[in-house]
């Protein structure tokens, strides 16, 4: 087969890759040892980053893409896919991660935005992107820019699932409401939520987003993860929840099993026993406006 007959970086390949992650847990890791632990525990992929969200919260300042050396260290340590975070709108950080061989890029509100007006034009890349969203309009704007996967934003680094729940209910609830609308109402609704009409209609026909929808931002326990799955998530991202708990290895395995058996309370009860402390939690209502991450990018 000649190389020119092969097509790379198509929409189908990007969405297909995202689809392979379904039913899985994607874990934040900051070094090779954590990546190996995550892989060993059954993670479908790891998210490589400089610091987990709760540490980003503590240290303040500008949070950027991880050091390429760190990313390569993680890529070399595991055989599962490796993802990486870039700042919203920072297309050069994305070009760098693509060159390094990262399998998916997270254009993430957890890092300090580089552009307050535009997100990255994701269709220009061969590598697929995942983006955060709080509601249907935001999800569809990201998909329109080329995102192959959506995740709820939640409120990262808090260990508090309340915002992830809010965002997942927003998205699934809005899609359910589309069912009762006639064509003209959908066009009007698309305008209201600032989303492309054809994507709104596609959601209505499929009864779901046109791409895989994961949950992220505050998942700290096996029950949190299973709850998000029952609310309709295709899989979960766990950020600080694993490596800020008292026994990361057991927590990682327990969350993988809880996602696998998300409808079986017996299994969730069993894996939750004696896990030690989950990560320290934060009440999102006590956050100052400038500490809230989910409002970055819209």
């Amino acid at each position: 087969m000649k190389l020119k007959e092969l097509r790379f970086g198509t929409e189908l390949l990007k969405r297909g890759f995202a689809s392979m992650q379904k039913g899985g847990v994607i874990m934040d890791v900051v070094n090779a040892d954590q990546a190996k632990l995550a892989e060993e525990a059954g993670a479908v992929a790891v998210m490589s980053l400089e610091r987990v969200p709760s540490d980003i919260r503590k240290s303040g300042g500008v949070a950027r893409m991880a050091d390429p050396e760190k990313v390569i260290e993680i890529i070399d340590a595991v055989t599962i896919p490796v993802m990486g975070k870039v700042r919203i709108g920072h297309f050069v950080e994305a070009q760098v991660l693509e060159t390094l061989g990262v399998d998916m890029i997270d254009e993430s509100e957890v890092l300090t935005p580089a552009d307050e007006q535009y997100h990255i034009d994701k269709k220009l890349f061969k590598v697929p992107f995942v983006c955060g969203a709080r509601d249907l309009g935001e999800a569809l704007r990201r998909i329109n820019e080329g995102a192959a996967m959506i995740r709820t934003k939640g409120e990262a680094g808090t260990g508090n699932v309340v915002e992830a729940v809010r965002h997942m209910r927003n998205i699934t609830g809005e899609i359910r409401r589309l069912k009762g609308m006639e064509y003209q109402e959908m066009i009007d609704y698309a305008r209201e939520i600032e989303a492309p009409a054809e994507l709104v209609i596609e959601c209505s026909e499929r009864g779901r987003l046109p791409v895989v929808n994961f949950s992220a931002g505050g998942i700290a326990t096996p029950s949190d993860a299973a709850m998000m799955m029952q609310l309709g998530a295709d899989g979960v991202f766990v950020g600080s929840g694993i490596f800020k708990s008292t026994s990361p290895e057991r927590m990682a395995k327990a969350i993988v099993e809880a996602v696998n058996h998300f409808n079986d309370a017996n299994v969730i009860a069993r894996v939750s026993k004696g896990l030690g402390d989950a990560m320290p939690g934060l009440d999102v209502h006590t956050l100052r406006d400038d500490e809230v991450l989910q409002t970055r990018g819209r």
Binding site: M1, E5, L6, R7, F8, G9, T10, L12, L13, G16, F17, P81, E98, G101, V102, D103, M104, K126, V127, P128
Partner: peptide
């Protein structure tokens, strides 16, 4: 290889 080497072919 990695995801960027994923492809479609006849």
């Amino acid at each position: 290889g990695r995801q960027k080497e994923s492809f479609e072919a006849e």
